[in-house]
């Protein structure tokens, strides 16, 4: 087997990061997407644009500003130091926060589309049956948007797996803390350790294919596996 202890650490760390980021994004992204799908506020445009920014920006731009903002002189850094958390670069929490920002559009956009596709009518019908706003959301909107949640989760997970630039800039490549698979592969390639690079890269390739296969054959496969109706 060509995998070293550091390689295994990187794999475990990457999966842990992707899982955690997906969960956090579902928690934060759902209310944002719900609000965006319902609101007529003038803020809708600016908020949508802000969330979609990571799609357009080079990761280096995001990494650069996060490094400055989370550093001891930056606003986030001063807040976290004030709260007794220290500064966030070179920590697992730091790359979790960066990844959440970086993958946000991949969760909010499918969810928003899902909520918008439901339309007003099912919710109005629920309202006539004396459902309050919370019940409308949990008993009507949520089940109807289930496929969108699946898409959002898969995309968030997959996008975090493939993250590189931002983590390279703020992570500091600490084994088991911030040295994720993509960084580990980069280090292997630079050091001409092609065998190890192959092991990890091939693993990534297969894993990514399986994840995308799940996403794109959703209509055929996923309902059978997860009991989701499309």
């Amino acid at each position: 087997m060509g995998l070293s202890e550091h390689d295994l650490m990187a794999i475990f760390l990457t999966l842990k990061l992707a899982l955690l980021v997906t969960l956090i994004l579902l928690l934060i992204g759902t209310p944002i997407a719900w609000w965006l799908s319902k609101t007529r506020s003038f803020l809708k445009g600016p908020v949508s644009a802000l969330i979609a920014m990571p799609l357009v920006l080079p990761p280096t731009v995001l990494g650069f500003y996060l490094l400055l903002a989370m550093g001891p002189e930056g606003p986030i850094g001063q807040l976290t130091t004030f709260l007794g958390l220290g500064t966030l670069p070179f920590t697992f929490t730091g790359i979790v926060i960066a990844s959440v920002i970086y993958s946000m559009p991949f969760v909010v956009q499918p969810l928003q589309n899902g909520f918008e596709a439901i339309g007003e009518r099912p919710l109005e019908v629920a309202a006539t049956l004396r459902c309050n706003a919370w019940q409308q959301f949990f008993y009507v909107a949520l089940p109807m948007a289930k496929p969108s949640f699946l898409t959002a989760s898969i995309l968030a997970f997959a996008h975090t797996l493939g993250e590189f630039g931002v983590i390279l800039m703020i992570g500091g490549s600490i084994p088991g803390v911030t040295r994720v698979m993509s960084v580990q592969i980069y280090d292997h390639v630079e050091a001409l350790q092609y065998t190890q690079a192959h092991w990890l890269s091939a693993g990534m390739l297969i894993l990514s294919f399986i994840i995308l296969l799940l996403l794109y054959s959703r209509n055929a496969l996923v309902p059978r596996i997860f009991g989701v109706k499309n």
């Binding site: 490094l67 989370m70 070179f90 390279l168 490549s173 040295r179 280090d187």
Partner: peptide, 17 residues
């Protein structure tokens, strides 16, 4: 904390991170 090269290492110190 590991910089990918000595320039990034210096950058980590320069930015006080």
């Amino acid at each position: 904390v590991y910089g990918e090269n000595i320039a990034q290492t210096y950058q980590f110190v320069y930015s006080a991170n």
